[in-house]
């Protein structure tokens, strides 16, 4: 899932300072699962900001709505009624949501409530970790199922580097060395030969470096 973290309340309050009526738009996708932008979080944020404005003597009218997903045009289309008459929409979706809203509603002022952080998963309830670097060319079959592109701080493909010690990365004692993990795992699976092979420089044109990406699937297109 995409993991996002809410911006500080004061920051969001600053962004809607001159608005009288605001739509708080949650998303029932990834941000619901990572507990930062679902229905509940949307209501908490709207209530907190409404209370803040009340205390400041500048009341704010809030509307809340949680879209099935903010990254699909059909669900963003369905928001046509709720965006009517608001001065801005605060989107609690990942960075995709505000952009879909902006594209669909040209006159609507959109505000991101989240800092979209990474593609990852939960480690335990309340803890999320980054797992995928979205590089566009997966190498997990070569690394025992541990991603060096994002879990190695240097994205090294022929690791571990000289900064690996006691299984930790040189950037911090609380950061595991991905290449140490890869080593342990390949050793266990008796596939260290994979690690001995020289890995060529990666084709970063498949990643963000190559410019904005697009995936097209003719077979599932309609019409």
């Amino acid at each position: 899932m995409i993991v996002a973290e809410q911006k500080p309340l004061a920051e969001i309050a600053g962004m809607i300072g001159d608005c009288r009526k605001v739509l708080f738009a949650g998303c029932a996708g990834c941000v619901t699962v990572c507990l930062s932008g679902g229905e509940k979080e949307t209501e908490v944020m709207a209530t907190a900001l409404r209370m803040k404005r009340q205390l400041e003597g500048n009341p704010l009218e809030t509307v809340t709505y949680t879209a099935t997903r903010q990254c699909d045009p059909e669900y963003v289309d369905a928001m046509a009624d709720v965006v009517k008459g608001v001065d801005a929409v605060v989107s609690l979706a990942c960075g995709v949501g505000p952009q879909y809203l902006a594209a669909r509603y040209p006159d609507l002022w959109v505000i991101p409530a989240q800092n979209t952080t990474f593609a990852g998963g939960s480690k335990e309830h309340g803890v999320w970790e980054e797992f995928c670097g979205l590089c566009g060319q997966c190498v997990l079959h070569l690394t025992g199922g541990i991603c060096p592109v994002i879990r190695c701080s240097k994205s090294i493909l022929n690791g571990p580097c000289g900064g690996s010690q006691y299984g930790k990365c040189e950037i911090g004692k609380d950061v595991e060395c991905a290449w140490h993990l890869i080593y342990e795992r390949l050793k266990r699976l008796d596939r260290l030969d994979l690690m001995r092979q020289y890995r060529e420089p990666k084709d970063w044109s498949k990643a963000r470096d190559g410019g904005p990406r697009k995936v097209t699937r003719e077979d599932v297109m309609i019409g």
Partner: peptide, 8 residues
């Protein structure tokens, strides 16, 4: 924490 942030 939220109350602190909103000034209550």
């Amino acid at each position: 924490d939220l109350l602190r942030a909103i000034g209550l």
